[in-house]
Design a protein around this nucleic acid. Structure first.
Lengths: 152, 152
DNA sequence: TCGGGTTACCTTGCGCACGATGTAATCGTG
DNA sequence: CACGATTACATCGTGCGCAAGGTAACCCGA
C-alpha cells in the first residue's frame, strides 16, 4: 500500500504550493500599483459594489477582523478607501472607495488577463478547477465546523 | 462580455480560499500534536528521508531560508529535530529527526486519513486535482521567472 | 596561493492570517 | 425600562512567507 505520508500524494500540499506560486505571480504586477494580493482582493470586492461594512468584505473573502482591520487601515493610509461609522448603527464601519481607489481599477485593468496567461488555463478547465476547489472548500469548512459526528 | 474583475470568476481566489480552508482543517488535528501545518510539512519531508540539508527541505517545499530558518529553530526548541553543521562543508546545516521526531510520525498516523475524509475527494479526482495544480504551479513559476518574452 | 565570485545560511522588517481578549453599541426579554 | 446577551469591530501575540541585506565557508582561475 502507498505511504499516506508521501508529500507527492497529498492534494493539500499541491494546493498550498499552487496558492503561493500564484500570489508570486501577482506580486510584481501588484507591486507596481503599491498593492498586495489580499489588498487587491478587497478592492475587487469594492469594485463589485462599493460602500460595504467590514463584515461583508470578510464574508466575501473568508477573512476575519484580525486580518481585515489592519489591512483596511493600510488601504486607508494609502488613500484608496475611507472608513466611516454608520450613523444608524455606530458599531458598523463602512468601507468606501476614494476617487483614487476607483481609478485603481483602470490602472489594474491589465492584471486579470496577465494572470490568466500566466496560469495557462483555458476557460473550461478554469471553470472546472473553480468548481472542484469550491466543493473542496465547502467540504473542509463543513468538517471543521462539526466533524463527521455532526450528521443527523 | 463578463467582468474580468469578478471575484467568483477567478481561479486565483478559489485557490487562495481553498488553501486556507484546508489548513483550517489541519489546525485542530496538528494543534493537539503541537505542530503547525508548515512544521508538519517539514516532518513529512524528513520522514521520507532523514538528515537533509536546509536547502533540500526548502526545494521540496518551495520555501526559502527566511521562512525555514526560524521554523526549524522552533522545531529544534520543541525537541523534534537537531541542527548540525556538516564537517565536510561547514556552510550546510543538516536537519535530523530526534527520537521524538520519529515518534511523532506514529502520533500523527491518523492525520492523513482524517484530512482525506474532510476533503471528500475520491482517489481519481484527487490525482486529477494534483495534476492540474502542478501544471498550474509550473506555469506560474515559468511566467514569474521569464515572462512571455523569454520564449525562443 | 590569493583574491573574487559563489554558496548556504541567518537576520530583519513588513504584511498577512488566526486565536484570544477587549469594548462599545445594539438587541431582546422580562 | 433595566440588564444580560449579542453584534461589529479593534488589538495583541504568534507564526508564517518573502524581500533585502548580512556573514562565513567554499570554489576557482590567474
Amino acid at each position: 500500500m502507498p505511504d499516506e505520508f508521501l508529500l507527492d500524494e497529498q492534494a493539500c500540499f499541491a494546493l498550498y504550493a499552487a496558492s503561493r506560486a500564484v500570489t508570486d505571480t501577482y506580486r510584481p504586477l501588484l507591486g507596481e500599483l503599491g498593492l498586495t494580493y489580499p489588498q487587491y482582493l478587497v478592492l475587487l470586492v469594492l469594485w463589485e459594489s462599493d460602500a460595504r461594512p467590514v463584515k461583508e468584505i470578510g464574508e466575501a473573502l473568508h477573512l476575519d477582523y484580525g486580518t481585515l482591520s489592519p489591512l483596511l487601515k493600510r488601504l486607508e493610509a494609502n488613500g484608496l478607501v475611507t472608513r466611516a461609522r454608520l450613523p444608524a448603527d455606530e458599531r458598523t464601519v463602512v468601507i468606501s472607495l476614494t476617487e483614487q481607489g476607483r481609478t485603481m481599477r483602470t490602472r489594474a485593468s491589465a492584471v486579470p488577463s496577465a494572470i490568466g496567461c500566466a496560469l495557462g488555463l483555458d476557460d473550461a478547465s478554469r471553470r472546472e478547477l473553480i468548481t472542484t476547489l469550491r466543493r473542496l472548500t465547502a467540504s473542509a469548512a463543513a468538517y471543521s465546523l462539526g466533524g463527521f459526528d455532526a450528521q443527523p
